[in-house]
């Protein structure tokens, strides 16, 4: 079933969004600039500066990267393994560490799952339809990016705290939101909300509505159109958004710290536990957890590069065996 035509994916736009979104991951440059730009100029022609200057500029860039990216990463792993491999794994097998890992996975699953659904719906509505208040909706979706995470957390304290708007009602019904999993999930959903929608909107706008119109004129229902036409077209963009959303959800510190209550073995996520262990002079354990988060970042980076290449290629490979 190859309905896809060769739509050009606006990767540049996507990257621009990612960078305004404060995603602090360097976007890897691609060796091959892609079919479109090949006609313009070969990269070799642009090197007009003399050798020494090129060398200095490259050296500057490399040393900057080394100091700010590579060294910290090396330090994390070196500290984690400073007392040997067995100490490293013993630290990860601690009940508190396991509980933090489980909580982090659970919260990430909840927030990515919900943001996936709402992100797709929001992007679909914005990209494929015209309605009043569309700009306002886009602004709202962007809001979590411009709000400090601490404020994002405090908002939920004000809403659900015992002294907050719904506090007394919740207490009377014995419902615990703040200082429990629901509060942590809510805060995480809030800060990660824009990622999925923001990765999809430019992609869907670029793709337009022609295919959907064709499907509907051929007698497909709305849902059929969505699952058979829209969704396959945005598959890679969607994965990209989910990936960024997940990375942020697992790494969030500020907002979660405010609503966590720091109950040991219960409401501490991995980033919170890293800080706690560090303050308890348990440096190996602290960096062992940190190394897991660093690995997550590395995996994210690799998968992101792969996804970007797919998006760059501009079309979904045919007979794709991957079934997600």
């Amino acid at each position: 079933m190859s309905m896809q035509t060769n739509f050009v994916t606006p990767v540049a736009q996507l990257k621009a969004y990612a960078s305004t979104a404060g995603v602090a991951i360097a976007i890897p440059s691609h060796g091959e600039p892609g079919e479109r730009s090949r006609a313009v100029a070969s990269p070799r022609d642009l090197r007009t500066e003399p050798g020494p200057i090129r060398f200095v500029v490259i050296a500057l860039a490399v040393s900057f990267l080394t100091v700010f990216v590579v060294l910290p990463l090396v330090v994390v792993f070196a500290s984690a393994f400073s007392k040997g491999i067995s100490a490293y794994f013993a630290a990860l097998a601690e009940p508190e560490a396991l509980s933090a890992i489980k909580l982090t996975l659970l919260v990430a699953a909840i927030s990515v799952g919900l943001n996936l659904v709402f992100g797709v719906i929001a992007a679909w509505a914005i990209a494929k339809f015209d309605f009043r208040g569309k700009t306002f909706l886009i602004t709202l979706i962007d809001l979590p990016f411009s709000v400090s995470p601490v404020i994002s957390g405090l908002v939920f304290v004000l809403l659900f705290g015992a002294q907050g708007y719904w506090g007394s009602w919740l207490q009377a019904h014995n419902i615990h939101i703040l200082f429990a999993v629901p509060g942590i999930a809510l805060a995480t959903i809030f800060v990660t909300f824009p990622f999925v929608a923001r990765s999809l909107i430019p992609l869907m706008q670029e793709q337009g509505t022609q295919e959907e119109e064709a499907a509907i004129s051929l007698g497909a229902s709305g849902l059929q159109t969505f699952f058979r036409v829209t969704l396959p077209n945005i598959k890679w963009g969607l994965l990209y958004g989910v990936l960024l959303c997940n990375a942020r959800a697992m790494g969030e510190f500020g907002a979660v710290s405010v609503v966590s209550g720091h109950i040991r073995g219960e409401t501490n996520t991995m980033p919170l536990l890293v800080e706690i262990l560090y303050n308890e002079y348990q440096f190996v354990a602290s960096f062992a957890i940190a190394s897991l988060l660093a690995m997550l970042a590395l995996i994210t980076l690799v998968v992101k590069a792969v996804l970007e290449r797919r998006l760059d290629e501009g079309q979904i490979p045919r007979n794709d065996p991957g079934d997600h």
Binding site: V157, F160, G161, A162, Q163, G164, G167, Q171, H176, L178, F179, G261, H262, I263, R264, I276
Partner: peptide, 16 residues
Amino acid sequence: SHGGSGSQARAVIDGL
């Protein structure tokens, strides 16, 4: 649960 004394009191007031 451990933290600064003042902020811990605040958390209990907020429903911890």
